[in-house]
Design a protein around this nucleic acid. Structure first.
Lengths: 329, 329
DNA sequence: ATGAAAGCGCTAACAC
DNA sequence: GTGTTAGCGCTTTCAT
């Protein structure tokens, strides 16, 4: 019976009449096979779970779409769970460990339980961790080269003549972006000022508030901001306007991630682009298919997308190429 | 054994020493109870599923956060699945029917299979359908009063002196917003012009493109736009700037939903606000708790939030109050 | 206080 | 070709 309903009736040995009888009976009764029983029996769920730290940042929305496209092609369902803190992340991973998914992408930032991650590896559940390489992690990971991203963004700003460059970042971000920013500053002989680095909530409101506080003290006021991501950069655009500054004339802004919204903001954002999503999806499905993966820890390259928010025009794009080459250190 | 692990050991009759032995053994083996077996046995999954049409529109991201907060308070997990088309929606609902969730919020717009929805009702799975009242639907629903929203948005524009008001909407949107827009126009004695209504993709790019096409033909060019939602309105902001128009000086824009991004755009968006999320969550969890719900089909009221994108300032807010009162027809 | 056994709904292997 | 059966991992009831 299950043979017929799963569409493999012909391939086996069931009479056409019987098949029709079964199917119509099933329809009659509105029969839907029980998922728990099915996956208990099959010892697999045919689900890919994406654990995301938030949905407010459109970057993750874009990522999830890409995962789902790949999943559908292989007859998997996609399942999104939001982990906004350590507790929620632990619960989400425990669920996967309990068998709710056959594979998982961990994009949340908390990494609460090292042990839980180790178990994913032990049980050979295809898993990709985002942005958490090193740390003697047994799980495959895909990471954007944040340090290089921070570096080329800041270099771009310096090349445009800026000396007072602020960095808006997320709370507790132990983060490569900041290192790249500092390195670029250092190379240019600009002293880093601690009060030009401000930590804030990773929201539009946070970016706006941080920017306003930065622009309030006239004496220390920056002429450029390198933001942690496009969301904070969009917030910065808002904060600048609230403070009576025009972007890019009075203040240059660079974002990170090249999300859709960065291309449609006013003004359009210059930002650091990368293809972490594509790398991640390829890696995960390679593991699912049992194919070899190129490396346990992959680093995704970055490029600078120059739009309007720094006042640099396309014809100055040679600066970008230069930055890229320099970067191959 | 399961008694101990589920923390009810003491309440029953297990020796403390045995409990300790069991727990340490479980830790040793990294034991995690199998979810499929558990929910097969318990005949419940302790999961609430949200079926969302997309994640790119931040409105849904906000909604999901609210659901998850309420779910956690009741020890439920939240599960998001994206249904970008009929097929994906059908698969998502089938999953719920198969027992992957104890309750569901259906926010996708396709409503493929009436039969599937009926089954949710038959099986008494707590479900709330968004924006799809009437249609002799057996499932509870929560709907924003789109018609009224369209009406007050358009009235606001008319009160500001606009006569050529365009409406950007989503493809195939059989939609109250448009009717409210037309009613306001009609009441003001303004003839509706078919080519001032343009359907487009529900994306930033779609809003931008629609706006540019609207502003291209100088002769028919509108002085105001009422958009289907904030995402299209943000796109319109971009399109206007691309076409060399300033908002609000050359073009007024009104959005819908009062998403976070509408408060941080340049300029800040005037938009139609509502609390559909709160209504939805309350309704769903009332059903889960077995509490009575006020009505099978609820209508969520709307208000106009006046910001910058129409050139109306706060002191003109009396217009808004007036609109609200009128609206109680 | 503890162990044994039944059964949740399904599928795959096997006997007819 | 078709019907029967064991067992996936868990909880709960019933003996011990």
């Amino acid at each position: 019976m299950s043979l017929v309903l799963s569409g493999r009736g012909d391939q086996v040995r069931v009479a056409a009449a019987t098949q029709r009888r079964i199917i119509s009976a099933a329809k009659e009764l509105d029969y839907v096979p029980n998922y728990a029983a099915l996956s208990l029996r099959r010892r697999s769920s045919n689900v890919v779970t994406v654990i995301s730290p938030s949905l407010e940042n459109p970057f993750f929305a874009e990522a999830i779409g890409e995962v789902q496209d790949a999943a559908i092609a292989r007859k998997y369902s996609t399942n999104v769970v939001i982990a906004r803190n350590v507790t929620e992340e632990a619960a989400a991973i425990a669920h996967v460990l309990a068998g709710t998914a056959d594979a998982v992408i961990i994009a949340s930032r908390y990494a609460g339980d090292e042990g839980a991650l180790r178990q994913l590896a032990t049980r050979r559940i295809p898993s990709v961790v985002l942005q958490r390489r090193g740390e003697d992690l047994a799980l495959p990971s895909v990471s954007v080269d944040l340090e290089l991203g921070g570096y080329i963004a800041t270099r771009h700003l310096i090349a445009l003549g800026h000396r007072r460059i602020a960095h808006i970042t997320q709370h507790h971000a132990r983060d490569g972006r900041r290192n790249g920013y500092l390195r670029a500053l250092c190379e240019a002989g600009i002293a880093a000022e601690p009060n030009l680095i401000v930590e804030t909530d990773n929201t539009l409101a946070g970016g706006s508030a941080a920017t306003r506080s930065l622009l309030t003290k006239r004496s220390t006021s920056p002429t450029a901001i390198f933001a942690y991501n496009d969301q904070l950069a969009c917030g910065a655009l808002h904060g600048a306007r609230r403070s009576g500054r025009r972007v890019p004339d009075d203040l240059a802004v660079v974002g990170f991630d090249n999300t859709v919204s960065s291309a449609f903001s006013t003004p359009e954002l210059t930002t650091v682009a990368h293809e972490r999503n594509r790398f991640t999806v390829e890696m995960l499905f390679a593991m699912i298919d049992g194919a070899p993966i190129p490396a346990l820890h992959q680093t995704v390259p970055v490029t600078l997308v120059i739009r309007e928010s720094c006042g640099a025009t396309a014809d100055k794009a040679h600066k970008r190429k230069k930055g890229k080459n320099d970067a191959k250190r």
